[in-house]
Amino acid sequence: MNIFRFLGDLSHLIAIVILLLKIWKSRSCAGISGKSQALFAVVFTTRYLDLFTNFISFYNTGMKVVYIACSYAMVWMIYSKFKATYDGNHDTFRVEFLVAPTAILAFLVNHDFTPLEILWTFSIYLESVAILPQLFMVSKTGEAETITSHYLFALGVYRTLYLFNWIWRYQFEGFFDLIAIVAGLVQTILYCDFFYLYITKVLKGKKLSLPA
């Protein structure tokens, strides 16, 4: 494992923990898209089915279990525990527009036409766009709490670091996975506009608010 890969995983974990703590401590999930979080739970579930078929390392297994557990905890907090604070009126992105095309694409473009491989591919495609309901919600309300901005930034940094990891692996191991790379590029590009706002506003101590 190279440093980019490790920092990417760490950044991903930090993002998830930031959001869990924010919701838990404030007893509120206002401003958080339950749809994006539900999509992430689907992403982790469909991707990590190999927990039952392959053992890679304790690190690999441990992280997978933590990601899955955290994603379900998040969904439970938003749709059950703190349901009263969930801002469903602003969480109106149509998820079928993300799930259906990525599912079809996973059937058409994959490494191997087997159930586990198709589900893995679906999870890669779905992850690349799963944040859209959250970004849509931010653009609809025109603002995001600072802590939500930190979450989005850490989540964006994660896939960006993976891009560096893939360059490294191609260079030094001759390894590449085109499906992951293309989807990872799309995912990173979706965060670019947000990165700009984060650096120009949030880091200067301002709340992220979009011009009307």
């Binding site: 392959n54 992280m63 490494h111 990891n165 590449f176």
Partner: peptide, 10 residues
């Protein structure tokens, strides 16, 4: 090469 079986990444 284009690996597909063992997924060591997360």
């Amino acid at each position: 090469g284009d690996e597909s079986t063992l997924k060591d990444e997360l």
